[in-house]
Simulated scan of single mutants.
Amino acid sequence: MDKLNLRRELISARASLAPQQLRSNATRIRETLLDQPWAQMAGLVACYWSTGTEPETHGLVFALWKHGATVILPVLREDDDLDWAVYDGPDTLAPGRRGVMEPVDTRRGVDAIRTAALVIVPALAVDRVSGIRLGRGGGSYDRALSRVGPNVPTVAMLHEGELREDVPAEPHDMTVRFAITPMGLTRLK
């Protein structure tokens, strides 16, 4: 299946998830991730502020922040690359270019992700064999992931059925080291 059709299939499947299921998924994913020693010890975490039917990250971001981690969230630039700014509580967010909530703190630059000890990214699917991540098609997270060191845990958050064996890849597509679903954490590479 090509990327466009796979994206359509996955977005349609997500649209059919009931609000109660979305909440349950978010809780299970958050608890599993926060149980990982490398998540508990991460001083600087790059994450994202979820929208729509993405696995919800609002509670995760808040929990990481309350437990003492510095959390940076993306700020979408005009060239669709990701700048980063520090999350300092729910009152420090404002709608960005595409309506996604972004921190109002000073921008740290596209390379700020290089210093993160944990990187959590959105995905529509991840290939369980190669670790290739399928995003929404803008390339923003592929560029960001290309800046992350090889030993940093990179985690894609997924709903059930989105860890697959048929994710198409192109040369620019980046991999993640872990995928997390409501059923648990999977090490990919």
Rank of each mutant, 00 (worst) to 15 (best):
M101D: 10
L118R: 12
D173P: 00
M101A: 11
P171A: 03
R23I: 00
M1C: 08
C47Y: 10
R108Q: 15
R77T: 14
G99D: 13
M1R: 09
G137M: 06
P168K: 04
D88N: 14
G161K: 08
R8N: 09
S50N: 01
F62I: 03
V152P: 01
A63C: 06
A39H: 01
D91W: 03
P19G: 15
I180R: 02
L118I: 08
L6W: 11
D173F: 03
A69K: 01
E9M: 10
Y87E: 13
D88Y: 10
L185D: 03
G59P: 00
T70N: 05
I11E: 11
A85Q: 11
S146I: 00
R187A: 08
P150V: 04
R97I: 08
G52I: 12
V155E: 00
N151G: 10
R147C: 11
E170S: 14
D142H: 02
E56V: 14
P122Y: 15
T57A: 14
E162S: 06
A144P: 10
P90Y: 14
L188V: 09
L60R: 07
I120C: 04
Q20C: 09
D166I: 12
A125L: 06
A39N: 00
A69P: 03
V152F: 12
N151H: 09
L6Y: 08
R114H: 07
R107F: 07
S130F: 02
E162H: 07
L4G: 13
Q20T: 13
E54C: 03
S16H: 13
P74H: 05
A94H: 06
N25M: 04
S140T: 08
G99C: 14
F178I: 00
T106E: 13
R147F: 11
N5S: 15
G139R: 07
L34A: 00
L4S: 15
D83T: 08
E160M: 13
A42G: 09
